[in-house]
Simulated scan of single mutants.
Amino acid sequence: MRIISGKYAKRNLFTLKSQKTRPTSDKVKESLFNSLGQFFAGGEVLDLYAGSGALGIEAVSRGCEHAVLNDVSRQACQII
């Protein structure tokens, strides 16, 4: 897992070593952020099923000022 673009581009992310979370693929993230790109200038993001934190961290990397990441798994929160 890695950050695709922005000021934190190419940084690696860590994930759980179990099947409890399924990280969003780079292809899906790229499509999502290309569709919503105009909304990231200084906005905020809420990621309720953070898992690895990839979506929230990607949003901050692309220009959001603040991200709130939440996950039911304590292990996932510690990794984020």
Results as ranks from 00 to 15, higher is better:
L36K: 00
M1H: 13
H66L: 14
V60L: 15
I57S: 00
E58A: 06
E44I: 05
A50I: 01
K17F: 11
E30P: 07
E44H: 09
T21F: 08
V28I: 09
K27D: 10
Q19E: 15
L13E: 03
K29D: 09
L16Y: 03
R74P: 10
T24S: 01
S25K: 07
L55G: 03
T24N: 04
K7F: 14
N70S: 12
T15I: 12
K17E: 15
G51K: 06
T15E: 14
S5A: 15
K29E: 11
K27Q: 14
E58C: 04
R74G: 14
L55V: 10
Y49A: 07
T21S: 13
A9E: 11
A50G: 15
A50M: 08
L16T: 09
L69D: 02
D26I: 07
R11S: 00
D71N: 01
A9Q: 15
S35L: 11
S73L: 12
E44V: 07
K10Q: 14
H66E: 11
M1L: 10
N12P: 12
N70D: 04
Q38T: 08
I3Y: 07
L46P: 13
Q38V: 02
S61F: 05
E58K: 08
N70F: 10
E30T: 01
C64E: 03
I79S: 06
T15S: 15
L69K: 06
Q78D: 12
F33I: 02
R11L: 01
K10W: 08
S25N: 06
S18L: 06
E44T: 05
E58V: 07
L32A: 02
E44A: 09
V28T: 02
T24L: 03
A54I: 03
S35D: 09
K10D: 14
D47R: 07
R74I: 12
Y8S: 02
N12T: 11
C64D: 03
G37Q: 13
L16F: 08
I79G: 04
E65K: 13
V45W: 01
L13N: 01
M1A: 02
V72L: 15
F14R: 14
L69E: 02
L32R: 10
L46G: 03
N34M: 06
F39P: 11
K7Y: 13
G43F: 01
C77D: 00
S5M: 06
Y49D: 10
Y49I: 04
R74Y: 13
K7S: 11
I57V: 00
P23S: 00
S5L: 06
I79Q: 11
R22K: 10
G43E: 01
I4Y: 05
F14Q: 15
G6D: 13
L36I: 02
V28C: 02
G63K: 09
C77E: 06
V45M: 04
V28F: 01
H66W: 13
L48M: 12
L69R: 02
G53I: 05
Q75C: 04
N70P: 02
S73D: 15
I3W: 12
I4R: 00
S35I: 14
S31V: 05
T24C: 07
G37D: 10
D71S: 01
L32Y: 04
A9W: 13
S73I: 01
S5K: 06
